[in-house]
């Protein structure tokens, strides 16, 4: 076998391995998709068979799932909470980070380390006391949870913005100040545009976290306002029998917005993760 044939063979083998793996990676979602069209009693019985004329149930599962979970309202609350929390985090923490980096004193230094420290604290440590505190302050509403997400997201976001700001030269900012801009104008007209790449990274990392977060919205607002993960878990309920049909349909509906978002923003997501990892 010639060297050329050998590389061809290796390439073909690589493609086969990668294709098999990619199919394996995508098949769980596909299997759930197929099962969402089967009658609910047939799903657990034979999850790997295609729907046939006995088991096919059309969109029945989707209708019963939508009714049982209030999926559209859950989708709305998920969008509301994710969008406003991400805006609040990007806006307020970038301002804070700029202040910390430019006003160098013992206080801002301590503040920086406290923010960084909060990143390693697991949620369970503050789960109970945070829920109580937020409840006392009347923050157990969709707007209130935005404040809580700002507080929880602050650690990573401040850390990332500070890391980037340290490498931004002072000159332009000083020029803006000399031209008569006050710090607020300077920040929004000169500094924030420079921060855009980091802002996108922060926005994507936080959006992924908040959109999928279950425990915090469940504990804080779960009885009145359900987000998508809370609605899906609600379907499961206690340990009783589960409507597998409705569950499959809701899983499909939960995954669709994520796939759409991913296909549109793939470039930014991948970049965001790499940037987040380098600084994280």
């Amino acid at each position: 076998m010639s060297a050329k044939e050998k590389t061809m063979l290796i390439r073909t083998l690589l493609y086969i391995i990668l294709t098999v793996l990619a199919v394996a990676f995508l098949s769980p979602v596909f299997i759930v998709f197929l099962n969402s069209f089967k009658g609910k009693l047939f799903i657990s019985e034979s999850p790997f068979s295609l729907p046939d004329k006995d088991t096919f149930a059309g969109l029945e599962n989707y209708f019963s799932g939508l009714e049982k979970t209030g999926f559209f309202s859950a989708f709305g609350w998920s969008v509301f909470i994710t969008v406003f929390s991400v805006i609040a985090i990007v806006l307020f923490t970038s301002m804070t980070a700029w202040y910390i980096v430019r006003v160098k004193n013992r206080f801002t230094k301590a503040l920086y380390y406290i923010f960084v420290f909060s990143m390693i604290v697991p949620f369970q440590m503050v789960m109970f006391t945070m829920t109580k505190t937020a409840g006392e302050l009347g923050l157990d509403t969709p707007w209130g949870i935005v404040v809580i997400y700002l507080g929880f997201g602050a650690g990573l976001a401040v850390f990332m913005f500070c890391g980037f700001l340290k490498s931004v030269p002072l000159e332009i900012e000083e020029a803006a100040m000399i031209d008569g801009c006050n710090p607020v104008q300077t920040f929004f007209m000169v500094v924030f545009p420079v921060l855009k790449p980091t802002a996108i990274t922060v926005a994507i990392l936080n959006a992924m976290w908040i959109w999928n977060d279950y425990l915090l919205p469940y504990l804080l607002i779960g009885s009145e306002y359900k987000t998508i993960p809370v609605a899906v878990q609600y379907l499961r309920g206690g340990y009783g029998s589960v409507d597998m049909g409705a569950l499959m349909a809701m899983l499909v509906l939960s995954v669709i917005p994520i796939i759409v978002f991913y296909l549109f923003c793939q470039k930014y997501i991948i970049k965001g993760i790499v940037a987040g990892a380098v600084k994280g």
Binding site: A88, F92, T93, M95, T96, W98, Y99, I100, L111, I114, F115, S118, V121, M125, V126, T129, M130, K132, T133, A134, L137, L139, V147, I148, Y149, L150, G151, F152, A154, G155, V158, P183, V184, F187
Partner: peptide, 19 residues
Amino acid sequence: PVFVLPTLAAFTIAFAVPF
């Protein structure tokens, strides 16, 4: 108050006090 207070207030409520 403009640059730090909003983040710090949210952080205090959501993290520092509960911690």
